[in-house]
């Protein structure tokens, strides 16, 4: 039981480290070359903004990589009951 738990713990930690490592590499590329094509409000933004979003990009890199590959140019518009009803 203890051995099984150790394997699971190692798998979790090493998986997390690989995910974060890949995310960090992606984030370095994305904040300089990708963010402005995904969100028009990021065009012309400074170094401080790019550094601030870097940890989040490293955490959510699969979502951003998917949108970047799909050439999404503006964020999704949220939906709430009023917005949904107004479109009907």
């Amino acid at each position: 039981m203890a051995a099984m738990f150790e394997i699971l713990a190692k798998a979790f930690v090493y998986g997390l480290e690989v995910y974060a490592g890949l995310g960090f590499v992606f984030a370095l590329v994305f904040v300089w070359a990708g963010v402005q094509s995904l969100d028009s409000e990021a065009q012309g933004s400074g170094v401080g903004f790019r550094l601030l979003i870097l940890p989040g990009v490293a955490a959510f890199w699969p979502m951003l990589l998917y949108r970047w590959k799909k050439h999404v140019t503006e964020p999704l518009v949220e939906h709430n009951p009023h917005r949904q009803l107004s479109q009907q």
Partner: peptide, 15 residues
């Protein structure tokens, strides 16, 4: 903390 900037609010959507 990593998603506290408005960029995330817009790109994840408010809900």
């Amino acid at each position: 903390a990593a998603t506290s900037h408005d960029f995330w609010l817009r790109n994840l959507s408010a809900p």
